[in-house]
Amino acid sequence: MSTSDSYIPTPTELVEVIDETPTIKTLVLAPAEPMSFKAGQFIQLTLPGVGEGPFTPSSSPSHPERISITILRTGTVTERLHECRPGQVLGLRGPFGKGYPIDKLAGKEVLVVGGGVGLAPLRALILTLLDDLDPIKRMSIRYGARGMEELLFRREYDQWASHAKVDMQVTIDNPQPGWQGPTGVVTTLLKDLDMTLPECTAFVCGPGIMLQFTTQALEAEGLTAEQIYLSMNRRMSCGMGLCGRCNIGKYYLCKDGPDMNYALIKDAPNVF
């Protein structure tokens, strides 16, 4: 990985396209050689001739032979990625970044907070923890989306929450016909947390504004900055800590993140 190959994507076949929501699709890739990665590490996905972008796989690292990339249509490259069909060859570089600190979670109550497509990287964390729930005390998942139709991985919620150590609460922004669950943004699910706060570690992923208000809500509940990990969003090009643009203060998200302990960045300006 330390040669010029690091810049050049490896051709990888797209084997399945899953329509998740009206704005989100999952592209399932079959690397010629399984690409082993840790939950929370990201890859650079190339659509040949169009562009490249960083994405954190939403699939379990236990199955490196099939890597799922869940993508919100939000710009030029993602627009074109949404038009891809099975059989097409895409390019893959990586994995990059640190990944979630799963080895630090023994004995912890894990709080997973997702907003919109932010549940995608968190799914890799959730699946990894579900593989072996013994070390952790509990996993509580709180997820919010704009509307019912935008709820990501909806068919999996019951299965996740079927484990005794796991609970899940889901909200949508506004009431909708057919929705019996809570409404309001995801922070409304974080009031009066029924968790043992000193043992809690929170992982948050979503748009910048959601990260900001979720962090405020968690601090208001009594969590310290050290207990909060944020999936930060910055533009990236190389993924390897060289190109310079994803810095928050002295940190480069591509190599020191993309999930950053909030204590490390809370004093930096323009964090959110």
């Binding site: 919100l72 939000t74 490259v77 993602t78 910048g208 504004i209 969003n233 910055r234 533009r235």
Partner: peptide, 16 residues
């Protein structure tokens, strides 16, 4: 330099 994809109202296109 920092400009990201996504121009919806709830996303900041660049941190600077």
């Amino acid at each position: 330099y920092h400009r990201m994809a996504g121009t919806t109202s709830n996303m900041k296109p660049t941190p600077r």
